[in-house]
Design a protein around this nucleic acid. Sequence first.
DNA 1: GTAGGGTTAG
Length: 794
Amino acid sequence: MVDFRTMANRYASQLSLCLPQNTFTHTLARTVHAHMIASGFRPRGHILNRLIDIYCKSSSIGYARHLFDQIPNPDVIARTTLFKAYATLGNLKLAKEIFDGIPLSMRDTVCYNAMITAYSHNGDGLAALKVFGGMRKEGFRPDNFTFSSVLGALSLIADDEKHCEQLHCAVIRSGLGSVTSVLNALISAYVNCASSPLVSSSLLMAAARKLFEAMPKKDELSWTTMITGYVRNDDLGAARELLDGMTEKLVVAWNAMISGYVHHRFYEVAFQMFRKMFSLGIHQDEYTYTSIISASSNAGLYKYGRQIHAYVLRTEVQPSPQFILSVHNALISFYGKFGKLDEARQIFNQMPIKDLVSWNAVLSGYVNVGRIEEAKSIFQEMPERNLLTWTVMISGLAQNGFGEEGLKLFNQMRLEGLEPCDYAYAGAITSCAVLGSLENGRQLHSQLVQLGHDSSLSAGNALITMYARCGVVEFAYSVFLTMPYVDSVSWNAMIAALAQHGHGVQAIQLYEEMLKEDILPDRITFLTILSACSHAGLVKEGRFYFDTMYSCYGITPGEDHYARLVDLLCRAGKFFEAKDVIESMPSEPGVSIWEALLAGCRIHGNMDLGIQAAERLFQLKPQHDGTYILLSNMYATLGQWDDVAKVRTLMKERGVKKEPACSWIEVDNKVHVFLVDDTVHPEVHDVYKYLEGLVLEMRKLGYVPDTKFVLHDMEVEHKEYALSTHSEKLAVAYGIMKLPIGATIRIFKNLRICGDCHNAFEFISKVVEREIIVRDGKRFHHFRNGDCSCGNYW
DNA sequence: GTAGGGTTAG
């Protein structure tokens, strides 16, 4: 039988091996603890305190609390450990409760320092100072740490140069003006203050620099604080100058510099520094590698990233477990961003220890390429989740058209007690955009305002698109106008919103305004502008903007841009110009180009060119149903019914099936058309009767022999009426003519409006001279005068 | 004091 003391010594020494604390040592410590439980050893004293600390720091505060509650009279160390953990989580109420419960006789300087830091880290400078006051009143002697924490608290309150100067004077008066740690804290106060948008950062940085220069003894922290200060205040030149002046080559400072370059997108300089570290013999750590790997993916340098990966695998020195974890996490994300999921998955599977970052990285990899089913099962499998996990999943669902599921998950997240951040809201709002659910979207909007998230960029941008896709451009515009900060995404979203509603000219005007505000257009801006021009018939303007892409903004047009230009020219009937453009392309024209050409030929009945385009498409993508349908439509436009029949035979011979976009017809053999109004629409019944009559008529003409109509009353379930028919979309479309003016038609779920439907809507909008707004799972369609804002056949 | 996982636009 081993006695308690021997076992205690053994466990204590095992736990001391678990330092420094990181994900790896935490796992080790938990194993040690499991062993204690298995062998019946009941930890107490410093062993128990150490365990509490470890559970607190490895995000298992609930279990730490459980251990804590079992101690009859916990000492000051255990209490401090626990309230520090609560404070880190932002739960100051519980933290204060524990701190207040520490008897005066038990208190020490350390616990006061911790409470001051707790408040100042949570942004409550005044409360921190109050604790400091209480400490002095009770006669505790402040030490250097106290001063550093108090300075941190003061720097929160000091929001301009004057406060910082007062702080400076106070330090000198206190006689601590030459203590390095105190001066470091003061410099850090200046630097933090400089990041505030309300003050002159250059003045404060100059003051910090002066202080730094005059320091009697600088340590590593002094240098790093100063360098990161410059980096954070966007003065990379000054940061670099300082770094180059350092005699000691400190890896932390180099990492800070590299990360600065990466964040400012100076990838090449970051790589140069990385290489220089080798020649100077500076030992790189996980921070260096993670920055460089992320730089490779941001810069689109797949090969470079792979080289880094290969190098990491080759290194002879045994890397630390923390190094392996961090670097592999970065690599998972790197491969994920390039869509190389097999590589990402392989790294993930082989990792000896995974943390939440690894799981989130692999999850977003699957989400990004749209492999939602696999993403869902990863989400289910995850041992723990955080705000980020939920956000990735929600927006992933939304972006892949699963609006309902996205909203569901968003609600589930709230049920589990997580407070969604603005990014999560953005995902939920996108879900509403996908569903065309104005009601839900407006609700989320008002919640955002209540929560004070309404100045958020991402949420605002999502709102613009949501309102636009739900058919209310005015709301989209008012969001855009009231957003305190906008970026190029906001401008793009708003320009697209106008273009989608057929306001091509206004879209272009907004684009011109954007240029006046010195916002640089990007490749997406040009895609939007080109299709806006296309719908407004602004050929000259479209060509002009296309030309400025490279000449003014250095953006090389991609195939998608060429396709829009071809579309623009063909819609206007300028086939010669379109051919010139295609021939001038730097690379071999692909599917989208020939499709644009064929679609244009269909509109204008340009048979010869249309057939040429179709032949190219058959070569490139023989199974693509769109080509056959466009071609047969072209023949139909010209009344060449024999040729239409030939195309259909060709489809059968080649076994061409309709794309999934349309195969939903086969899935449940029903078309759902919803009226978005919440009110009961008696006209639905009229439409139903009308359709019945229509079908009878069509049958007489030998058309749609097997059409049946079913009228669903779905009021209870969806508060909406549904009309469903068997396979006959055209009849539904005609039926819609009977709907009240201004009714919005929504194709439910993740469905896309089909080609026949689209034609019918185009036709109706021309004949009845009425604007029809339809949205489906993918796009917004605004039909006016025989044309549709979506710009595509389907 | 440094890093790795998120969002929004076509």
